[in-house]
């Protein structure tokens, strides 16, 4: 798969924004792919965690923010547990989510959820889901 990177779509502030929110330095990632090999969501992601790290390193804001990766991530922390470079990837995922949520864009709309979908959900599912996916 080819991925176009041109100087036109590089956002050099992206790394800095991620660092301010998460405290993580994306350049520390050495692209080993351990995170992607561990991620339970891997089959369902537009970009694997490794590729997301690369896109962040390259300032590809549009691609990163337009992908489903951070929205499918379940914050399971297995990638962080295994990353040989000590990158706390779930924090990076949270920062990507917050870039959108802090612009007041919800990823899920609580009022659109049907009563029959949520009636049986445990409270912790609602609290955590809304914490992660609404502003």
């Amino acid at each position: 798969m080819s991925r176009e990177i041109t100087s036109k779509n590089i956002d050099d502030k992206l790394k800095q924004k991620i660092r301010e929110i998460s405290g993580e330095i994306v350049q520390q990632c050495m692209q080993c792919g351990t995170c992607s090999g561990s991620c339970p969501m891997i089959e369902h992601l537009d970009y694997s965690p490794r590729l997301l790290m690369a896109l962040l390193q390259w300032g590809q804001a549009e691609k990163v923010l337009g992908s489903n990766t951070a929205w499918i991530c379940a914050s399971c922390h297995v990638c962080q547990a295994r990353c040989p470079r000590g990158v706390e990837i779930p924090r990076v995922m949270e920062a990507v989510r917050l870039l959108k949520l802090r612009a007041n864009v919800n990823h899920i709309e609580p009022s659109n959820l049907q009563p029959e979908e949520i009636i049986d959900l445990p409270q912790i599912a609602m609290v955590s889901g809304f914490r992660k996916m609404t502003s």
């Binding site: 339970p40 969501m41 379940a74 899920i108 955590s128 889901g129 996916m133």
Partner: peptide
């Protein structure tokens, strides 16, 4: 035994959560 069940993604991505 230590792999994620999908957690709160039952709200955001219910089908994927069911699968994993």
């Amino acid at each position: 035994a230590t792999q994620c069940c999908g957690s709160y993604q039952v709200l955001g991505a219910p089908d994927i959560t069911l699968k994993i």
